[in-house]
Design a protein around this nucleic acid. Structure first.
Lengths: 202, 202
DNA sequence: CGTAAATTTAACCAAGCAGTTAAACTACCT
DNA sequence: AGGTAGTTTAACTGCTTGGTTAAATTTACG
């Protein structure tokens, strides 16, 4: 379709996403967004009336791109242990390429939980059901240690996401270069899943 | 000593901490800090010249209060599994009472990693040595599965801290009331440690 | 070509906010 | 009583920033 060049609207959205993720909502400047999109402030407001409207779009986009990904995996028919491996791998890949996303989302969600609630979760919550039943079944069959599915899910998310939120802490605290960190995350791609599986396997 | 009333300086610091943690550095207003401290803006600047100086103090305080706590536990002579139980318990207790702290620290550390580096870590890094050796020894003796001490540490921190960063996500995503969430965290106090121990025990 | 939409230029407004200042008031100390 | 540090009041400066406006210029397109 438009292989030649992205539309101005897209340019703005990309620039806005970059700036919002880097600086946070309060720290982002409309001027900087305009600059990075290669346009001027007037045109920026011409497309997206206000900072608030623009930021709402970005937040929706950011959350909308990551949440369905996890939910889709959780909703498949794969066997439990393989599903854990799959969700870790999927998520870790994605978040490695968008390392600012977790912090941004966590901030916005804490600032305005209602929005998060209305926008996304209502539709997605049921997708957890299959996972929940799967865990309960495995517990009932004695294949895994008794564990609350919610807690298990929380654990997986924690292990995958936190290192990116705490990247500077971890890097400095453990003395890792950027390259080291990348390698450590690569290593985690398999390690985390096996860690979780060992923790629950009966 | 001064049982009657806290000094104005302390009042300001407490108010500043509260406001900074709730609103973040960029979102915090000097006026609000003054109001909450029960004084006026002029006096606020009379005590702490600028917002920057004040925020630097708060950041230092915030990090300085939580990091040494973990390090102290990691540096003790307790046996490995008990140490894991201890660190989880200590940390979870503390962070339950200061639930805004993790998000604040994570933000500041991402915004300015150098500061974090200079201020705290230099002195604290060595405290990890004992834990590191302990893990390596346990691996060598075949008491636990082979695991990089750094990764193990990262896993424990992840499991403890993340739920507080993602509290709204988790609450909404899993449909937990405030009471439910509190109970879930209480439950985690023992669960997380056992989870980790099962994951590494040979 | 002609017209409408897209884009720039440049100036401007209003609000919010950090920080200042000076004068007056209060409380405590000696 | 007098002085000093702590505190208030209230007005003000200066800068940043979101948002607007109007006119000029360019681009796209039938």
């Amino acid at each position: 379709m438009d292989l030649q060049k992205r539309s101005t609207e897209e340019l703005i959205l990309e620039a806005a996403q970059a700036v919002f993720l880097e600086k946070g909502l309060a720290g982002a400047r409309m001027q900087e967004i305009a600059d990075r999109a290669g346009i001027n402030k007037a045109l920026l407001h011409y497309y997206f009336r206000s900072k608030e409207k623009l930021s709402a779009l970005i937040i929706e986009r950011a959350i909308g791109v990551i949440l369905p990904r996890v939910m889709a995996v959780l909703d498949t028919d794969v066997e439990l242990f393989d599903k854990i491996r799959l969700v870790v791998d999927t998520y870790l890949t994605f978040v490695s390429r968008n390392s600012f996303l977790p912090l941004f989302i966590v901030n916005e969600v804490n600032r305005n939980p209602q929005f998060f609630f209305r926008t996304v979760v209502e539709k997605e919550r049921t997708h957890l059901d299959k996972f929940r039943r799967q865990v309960e079944e495995a517990v009932a069959q004695g294949r895994i240690h008794p564990i609350n599915p919610a807690q298990l899910f929380m654990n997986v998310m924690s292990l995958v996401i936190f290192p990116f939120l705490g990247k500077p802490i971890i890097q400095v605290g453990l003395g890792l270069s950027d390259e080291d960190f990348k390698r450590a995350m690569e290593h985690r791609r398999t390690e985390v899943a096996e860690f979780v599986i060992r923790a629950i396997r009966a």
